[in-house]
Amino acid sequence: MGAGHGGALTARYVGGTTRVHRLEPHVKLVAVLAFALVVVATPVHAAWAPAAYAGYLVVVLAVAAVARVRPGRLARGLVVELPFVAFALLLPFVTAGPRVEVLGLAVSRSGLETGGGLLAKATLSVLAATVLAVTTEPRALLRGLQRLRLPAVLVQILMFMIRYADVVTGELQRMRVARESRGFRARGAAGLRVLGATAGSLFVRSYERGERVHLAMLSRGYDGHLRTGPAAAVRPRAWATALTLPVAAAAVLTAGFVLG
């Protein structure tokens, strides 16, 4: 985190020049959101649902391959859903309804379907969102959200957060080094007091920095609006490329409804 260029928010981003990297950020955001919507719309109790999940998986892995996202990175992205894996694994045992035998255990059929469905849907969406995060710089994502008409105040707050997250986490990192070089080990109530003071002074420093930034901006003519240049026109080809992901997923879903 101490490295100049990396940082807390760019932890996921990996630079590249693939077709996925070059797409406009708001186009990618729409594509990933649409993909998630298609995945969520899949009925869990349909007999063909597992086949549809497999189809989506092929689609999203193909996009990841085009973007040259390493499998390890995709797998690391999945760590966030661990608490829900536990929940999904419990479902077959606690849900009411007719039972089926799986590996010698009597589990609820409906619980198995819904638990599996939840797990599959969450995993697929996280994979797609991980491809987005790996191929898009935080600042580019901010521009994308701006073009998608996120309110101007939220865009500005996000901009300051993205700009200063590295500064603030760097400050935290230096405080940690200072603490530990003085022999601090977080233990018990005394540790809580010390870490509380750390977070407290981190807040004071962040807030005061915000005040200084505001004054510096005022002295440069800030009036509550940030001027950005005209947005570049998006080629229809870019939309066509990006929407391949949700359209392919929608094709899988439609095939499921028609054939299943």
Binding site: V153, I157, M159, M161, Y207, R209, G210
Partner: peptide
């Protein structure tokens, strides 16, 4: 914007 951004 700056204060809420830094607080975030």
């Amino acid at each position: 914007a700056p204060l809420a951004g830094l607080t975030a």
